[in-house]
Design a protein around this nucleic acid. Sequence first.
DNA 1: TTTTAATACATCGTGTACGATATATTAAAA
DNA 2: TTTTAATATATCGTACACGATGTATTAAAA
Lengths: 150, 150
Amino acid sequence: MAFPQLKLDNQLCFRLYTAARLVTASYTPYFKEFGITYPQYLVLMLLWEQDNRIISEITERLNLETNTVTPLLQRMEKQGLIVRQKSQADSRQRIISLTGEGKRLEEKMKNVPNCLAQKIVDNGISVDELQKLIPILDKFICAITNVNNR
Amino acid sequence: MAFPQLKLDNQLCFRLYTAARLVTASYTPYFKEFGITYPQYLVLMLLWEQDNRIISEITERLNLETNTVTPLLQRMEKQGLIVRQKSQADSRQRIISLTGEGKRLEEKMKNVPNCLAQKIVDNGISVDELQKLIPILDKFICAITNVNNR
DNA sequence: TTTTAATACATCGTGTACGATATATTAAAA
DNA sequence: TTTTAATATATCGTACACGATGTATTAAAA
């Protein structure tokens, strides 16, 4: 092996890529029942936390661009989870609001995260180790954000 | 807030999702020069490690399905990075091999991972903290894999 | 040996991601 | 106040991801 830094097994990035894909895959069976996807679930969580947000708030919180979020919201509106109405104050903005159906999902999905967390722990990683990941990932995300904004 | 477990900021999964997207984004400027993408880079790393692999080896190592990898390899062939030839021994299989161009990229890209790692460290996370992520992520990936295979 | 099952890929449809660009509206500058 | 710049969102094109299904080939069973 000429360059060990080019070996897949040595790379943190590949682990993050894999971990992210696998964990969203583990959510999928829970979402299927409600006909939503992981990014749609992220939007719903934001709106459950606080309803009637403008799109730029959503793109900022999710670290996504409008070219991802706009079509995502259009699909969610078509499915009857949200409505997208123009703001009176500034008609460039759109207010995103939950429908009754979107609101009802909160109660229905409240057990999903803990249920999944329990399954992960049952399969060989401690809560302590999972907790350790959080502050390091926060620091990592912060550092990478700085790298990307030069 | 009715259900704190439904809060975005409390979720490990969202951090992984964000970290993975941002770190592949930080690779992109390096790839642009060579006209490749992050998943294509993963395939190249596998082939630099060992050339002439069958597709199932690639899907296993990358934890991806054939419906992702086949089109990926087709694009890479069109770009002249690899060739996809049917196996003599078992004509269901395809042998994936680097072209001269694909081989030359190894030398050209050998500094990319270290260069990026340096940039990340320069932006506020220690090598020690990055190293700590690796074994926990390995354990996490292992646990999630078990969850997904039930 | 013929039938059946398993394996290895490929194709199709849908939903993200994201660079690049366009459009409408508001704010700032001349 | 007219021009110009900034803001907020939308659209387009390309490349993944992945569930579902199809096809060719080989291996196993009857």
